[in-house]
């Protein structure tokens, strides 16, 4: 039941302006430690490439991070300056890959929502995205 509600919220978040850039399935996960992560899909239906420069959440410091797992099993995150989204493509920010990290995410709690501003080279827009519990997050991972 809870998953259904979240899925609905995720769908609604996907409908934004008339720009060729759409953010879909965006959600933050309630933090287990000091920091939280946001995952999302970005679709560029335009005929030219764009670039996600940053994602801002009011009152918090954020960074775009890329997690990589090396051949010997070492996982590491590194900050990235921005993420290119080619024309007519979708970029998935998913666990174990790209994410937006919210530093010191005190106050970001499950079943709430946050306002996130997505800044692209061609413009920016703000959307409310849900904060999901770890359990819901696991359900989302299983369904991917």
């Amino acid at each position: 039941m809870r998953s259904t509600v979240v899925a609905l919220a995720l769908l609604i978040a996907g409908c934004s302006s008339g720009s060729p850039i759409k953010v879909g399935s965006a959600y933050a996960v309630e933090p287990s430690g000091p920091n939280a992560a946001i995952y999302l899909d970005i679709t560029n239906s335009g005929s030219s490439g764009d670039r996600l420069i940053r994602v801002m959440v009011d009152g918090y410091t954020t960074m775009i991070h890329e997690t990589a797992i090396s051949a010997d099993g070492q996982a590491s995150m590194k900050p990235v300056d921005g993420v290119d989204i080619a024309a007519n493509s979708t970029l998935n920010l998913r666990p174990g890959g790209l994410h937006v990290m919210i530093m010191d995410a005190v106050g970001i709690v499950e079943d709430g929502s946050i306002s996130a501003t997505f800044e692209f080279e061609t413009g920016s827009f703000t959307e409310r995205i849900p904060v999901v519990s770890l359990d819901t997050y696991l359900d989302l991972l299983e369904s991917q």
């Binding site: 996960v29 933090p31 287990s32 430690g33 000091p34 920091n35 939280a36 992560a37 991070h65 997690t67 996982a75 995150m77 666990p95 174990g96 994410h99 990290m101 919210i102 995410a105 770890l134 997050y137 696991l138 991972l141």
Partner: peptide, 9 residues
């Protein structure tokens, strides 16, 4: 504990 991506999963 600062890792929000892989560790909690």
């Amino acid at each position: 504990t600062y890792c929000p991506d892989i560790c909690p999963v």
